[in-house]
């Protein structure tokens, strides 16, 4: 068992805050447990609530290297784990034309011709590592099998080289947008964290942290309007990323209070669908402007 990264939940909150991530109690507790129990952490939630950001902040807070595996449709072992550098192997064989098969084989399947991909890179790294498997739901089901094997005992077998075992277990974070249900087997091996929209107080702090020049009163109104929008039935409710973007826009526009005109003209920053836009304008009584 290796040294845990954090001593207590409060320490997690502290160190993440110094890395620019304000964690709520559930987030901090789950991160603490993932570290203590040595389990991967599966983070699920709508787009823009800070799933990837959590991994970045974790890496910074623990001064680890962040190794990122971006999943997409059709990603396979060669992209996720390792691949032999075919072109270089061919060159090597052509260069050593006169040598026998035995020698060529030993040469060609050596460290030099191996291209490590994120999973292998994270396992071989002797320094603290945060491995981020981003958008796991985009990858095919076969990929989950590979992840299971690698995340189960943190070792990889390369037939020509032997088994490579992690010298130091990386902190593994998987994210998912829930476009597909991940397999039960993978879920059972992970701790589950559902990231949702934060409480108003926390969101206000996040806005103040990310947009330092913003007036406190204005930040307060921004968070209130966003909270009101989230109670409506919209196609895409605004998430933290949108709140921060909106705050930045307001700062750039030089708005000092949030009134109908300002909201009406900048609502496009937080609502991405025309129907949502119309509905919000009606419910927030922005339409009274037109009359």
């Amino acid at each position: 068992m290796q040294e845990p990264l954090f001593g207590s939940v409060d320490e997690v909150v502290d160190r993440l805050a110094r890395a620019g991530y304000l964690a709520s109690t559930p987030v901090a507790t789950t991160v603490f447990l993932a570290d203590r129990l040595g389990k991967p952490l599966l983070v699920e939630g709508p787009a823009g609530v800070g799933k990837t950001e959590l991994a970045r902040a974790l890496a910074e807070a623990t001064s680890s290297e962040l190794v990122r595996l971006q999943c997409y449709e059709g990603i396979d072992e060669a992209r996720a784990l390792y691949e032999w550098n075919h072109a270089k192997q061919l060159l090597r064989i052509t260069a050593g034309r006169d040598e026998g098969w035995e020698q060529a084989r030993d040469e060609v399947f050596s460290e030099e011709f191996l291209l490590p991909r994120p999973l292998l890179k994270a396992i071989r790294n002797p320094d603290p590592t945060v491995l981020l498997v981003d958008e796991t739901d985009k990858a095919d089901v076969e990929m989950e099998g590979l992840l299971l094997e690698v995340l189960g005992d943190f070792q990889v077998t390369v037939p020509e080289l032997g088994t490579i075992t992690a010298q130091r277990r990386p902190f593994v974070l998987l994210t998912s947008n829930a476009t597909r249900e991940l397999s039960e087997a993978l879920k059972r091996r992970c701790l589950f964290l559902h990231l949702d929209f934060p409480a108003p107080e926390l969101e206000r702090e996040i806005v103040s942290l990310k947009v330092p020049g913003l007036d406190d009163r204005l930040a307060d109104s921004v968070v209130r309007v966003v909270a009101a929008l989230r109670t409506m039935e919209l196609r895409k409710a605004p998430s933290i990323a949108e709140t921060v973007d909106w705050a930045r826009t307001l700062l750039a526009l030089g708005a000092d209070t949030l009134d109908e005109q300002v909201v009406e003209s900048s609502l496009g920053v937080i609502l991405k669908y025309q129907t949502d836009h119309r509905k919000a304008a009606a419910e927030l009584r922005l339409d009274t402007l037109l009359s």
Binding site: V9, T25, P26, T29, T30, F32, L33, A34, E44, G45, A178, E181, E184, K187, R188, L191, F192, L193, H194, D196
Partner: peptide, 21 residues
């Protein structure tokens, strides 16, 4: 974790037993 903080206990149980939002 210990039992000192109820909200931490809630988060810990949610993280370990839940699998779906």
């Amino acid at each position: 974790l210990g039992l000192a903080d109820r909200e931490q206990l809630r988060a810990a149980l949610a993280a370990t037993v839940l699998r779906r939002s």
